[in-house]
Amino acid sequence: MLRASLKALSRYPMRLRLAALCMLPALAGSASAADPLPPNTLITLQRGACEKRCAVYKVVVFADGTVVYDGQYYVRKSGVVRDKVDVGSVAKLITEFEAAGFFDLADQYGYLSEAGCTSMLSDGPVAIVSVVSGAKAKSVVHNHRCVGDVPAQLTRLEASIDKLANTARWIR
């Protein structure tokens, strides 16, 4: 479990990795047979910059409900914040991702090609959603300039992560 989580975190900056690593012992201790979530469960959302000065931040949600937010710029709260959410809510979010077929999506929408986009807006941030849960792992790069059914679904999933972590209190 630890190895999987560490691997999943390896793509993030050092300060976010350190903050997240602080959570791993607690995460390991929380694993039990009764736990409905695989203990390596990790949900991350990164939102990038756009011309309209979009909020740039990252948020990581762990299996034990730990939330680590890292606000970069055009946010109300800059830097790393740690919080906790209900574990059941994390499980529900994983269920939502599975139901939406997230693990079967393409790796990118509107980033390296316009496949899956019915049209392209002239401005929009790139969001990267990564989910690890048990044997499943998926990362999707979603350019918000890309307009289409799947991108719209991705937008909803990203919003679900924001809602779970209640990032609105830090970014607006």
Binding site: E51, K52, L121, S122, D123, G124
Partner: peptide, 20 residues
């Protein structure tokens, strides 16, 4: 911010820029 001039920009330089 962002830098634009007709035909030279690396971003869209149509007058409407983007939505919103």
């Amino acid at each position: 911010t962002v830098a634009r001039f007709p035909g030279l920009s690396w971003v869209n330089d149509e007058w409407s820029l983007h939505d919103g």
